[in-house]
Amino acid sequence: MKSVFLSLAALCIALPAAADPVIVDNCGDKLTFETTPGRIVVHDMNMTDMAFALGLQDRIVGLTGITGWYKTSPDFDSLRGDIPELAPKYPTVENLVAVDPDLFFAGWYYGMKPGGDVTPDTLEPFGIKTLVLTESCIHLDKNRPEASMELLFDDVLRLGRIMDVEERAGKLVADWRKELSDIKADVGDADSKRVFLLDGPADAPFTAGRFAIPDAMIAAAGGENVTHDMDTSWGRSSWEAVAAADPEFLILLDYQTGNGAADTFAFLQSHPVMSQTRAVKNGQWIGLRYEELTPGPANISAIRKIAEAMHPERF
């Protein structure tokens, strides 16, 4: 009997200790993972870029919300390989359940809508956990802090912890912080410029308020977002309000259809009030892709592009 107890004791010593569960903040709630997800679905190009940057392709069983809106780049296509797209725009619960994922990485108005068919609550009964893009939390919680680049950094670090690639995530974020520090040093004491971001021609301008990542990107590039006072992430202003702020530089979202951002600038040149602003008169603008203006790895190089275009004398 004694030898049995000794054998059991030896076995207990030999077994590795159970790993602690991973617990991350998820729009103010706690999201717990007892095991590392092995099958994930990612919505939208910006969040997919995060997953690719962490080398998670072998665990991605599907993407959603890519080809229904955007043109992909050759780099994106190469990194994607043969990962299937489950839905070109917003997914259904059926789309997701069909591939039996452990995790869905999405956001409010990035694949999910409050009260919609696909939400963390509707996916939970199927054993699917939902990691919510932090920038989008403002749609459910109006007490969120305004945008900063920490939104991107924290999301990458959270995903790294969940997927057990924490070291790689930490290295990415450290490199990005260094790049932003270098950009700030290059811009130096250059005068801040008033910047307006426009998501295409419309009767009322659709743009970024203080809870959207472009607000933080503009500040990091040495500018001031003229719609910073908008109490939203993305929303509509008025042409009169924007023209009154007299922006000196424009960021135009480039969907790469037709002549892309050039078409949007032509629209502004013919606009009765925007044509009188300094940015339009002086032709001061840059076109950036969707994934460069939503939280994701492309934000960092986009900030440098903005800084170089606004302050060419410093680069």
Score class of each variant (00 low, 15 high):
105 F>D: 01
287 G>T: 15
72 T>Y: 00
287 G>K: 15
5 F>L: 13
151 L>V: 10
206 F>R: 12
14 A>V: 13
250 L>V: 10
286 I>F: 08
6 L>K: 11
293 L>F: 03
165 V>G: 07
249 F>E: 08
74 P>T: 15
4 V>D: 07
31 L>Q: 09
67 T>P: 03
51 A>C: 12
193 K>D: 06
6 L>D: 09
221 A>D: 12
157 L>A: 08
149 M>E: 13
102 D>Y: 01
168 R>L: 08
289 R>D: 11
274 M>T: 05
173 V>A: 05
20 D>M: 14
273 V>T: 15
228 H>Y: 13
253 L>V: 15
154 D>Q: 15
163 M>Y: 04
177 R>E: 14
180 L>Q: 13
192 S>I: 12
131 L>F: 10
304 R>S: 13
101 P>G: 14
282 N>D: 15
153 F>K: 03
102 D>R: 02
30 K>D: 13
126 F>L: 04
170 G>K: 00
224 E>I: 10
125 P>K: 01
76 F>E: 03
60 I>Y: 01
40 I>K: 01
274 M>A: 15
303 I>H: 12
179 E>W: 04
269 Q>P: 09
10 A>R: 05
314 R>Q: 15
187 V>R: 12
119 T>R: 07
176 W>P: 14
171 K>H: 08
210 R>W: 09
301 S>M: 03
255 Y>G: 06
175 D>P: 02
284 Q>F: 10
211 F>G: 10
310 M>Q: 10
148 S>D: 09
